[in-house]
Amino acid sequence: MRACVVHGAKDLRVEAYDPGVPGPDEIAVAVSLGGICGSDLHYYHRGAVGDFQLREPMVLGHEVVGRVASLGPGADGPAVGTPVAIHPATPCDSCRECAEDHRNVCAHSRYLGSAARTPHVQGGFARRIVVPAAQVRALPAGLSPRRAVLAEPLSVALHAVRRAGDVAGKRVLVTGAGPIGLLVVAILRHAGAAEIIVSDLLEQPLELATRVGATTTVRADRPDEQERAQDADIAIEASGAPAGLRTCVERVRRSGTLVLLGLLPPGEIGFLGNTVVTREITVRGSFRFDADFDEALSLLADGLDVEPVITHTFPLAEAAEAFDLAGDRTRASKVLLDLDSE
């Protein structure tokens, strides 16, 4: 069996990988599709995500679907052959955050394809992986693996929109039209936002934003278009760029709400604190998700229109080419790896 393994910055290899056999309460999954995420790209390009540095080779990927291959002793899960999606997080379930239903910010959580811990948590871009049974979800009837592979990033978007509060009838600004920003737009449309303004530097992502529900698009590098984004009730920063954060602070209305979703560069950045104070802007962070994963699967099964987000699919053998394209936002949005091609 083979896997997509990152050894360091710009050192991505498709190589032999032995996931072992499932132990007690574990399930082996034959992975069919995986979506390349921004964090995967950071590990590929920089050898790190924020403060999480690669210290050993690591299988990438946390947006994966497949079929149950085998169950370990005592595992309670779907039968062998069942199409499944994998929730990538394993919180500790014993800390204060877990007890207070904030499992997504558990400091002891393990996450597929993450270098936050050493040994690293190996990811899902492998022909077969072994995960705790509690992370495995049978796909709803009629949901294709191609749509289901978006469950993880859609969960991130769903959680962020929930952090914004009631969006029905509201004017919402989204900065950044990458895959997560596009899925935020799809959720906003589903939740009844009256206006959805999307800002980005590139035309291709803005075209995709219109296809998934944006009512207005704005080129972030064109000052003459900025008034279109003025006085938003809610602003969701999905670009991870300091300029995007500044736009949100400047364009959200007085007493409005700002949700920080995109991970900003490590270290301190400039922040318009006085504007937040004098306008009484509510600022909320949004990190990953928890039970939102199950709702995301249901939304996908019910036909939520997210198809435009997926733009390319590559066989596992061409993982390096897939990663290079996924980092080119002028040509691609969500890029998938087809592991059934192995």
Rank of each mutant, 00 (worst) to 15 (best):
P83E: 11
H62S: 07
A148M: 06
E268S: 14
R254G: 01
A151E: 06
A191H: 12
P205Y: 00
D305T: 11
V167F: 05
G178E: 02
V14L: 03
G72S: 10
V259K: 02
L201C: 00
S70R: 15
S239C: 10
A235Q: 02
L139M: 03
G8S: 08
A296E: 07
A164V: 05
A115F: 08
A89T: 04
Y17V: 03
V105C: 03
H108A: 14
L143Q: 11
H108D: 13
D224C: 00
T247P: 00
T175M: 05
R2G: 00
S94Q: 14
V283G: 02
V161A: 03
T82C: 10
L201R: 15
I234R: 05
I180Y: 09
A85F: 06
S109R: 14
A301N: 10
S298Q: 14
V167M: 08
A48L: 09
G176E: 04
A191V: 01
R284G: 00
A229K: 07
K334P: 04
I187M: 09
L33N: 02
R137L: 00
D101C: 04
G113T: 06
A209N: 08
V65F: 05
L12A: 06
V174M: 11
L33F: 08
A186R: 04
Q53N: 08
N104S: 14
V49D: 09
T217N: 11
D221A: 14
A9I: 03
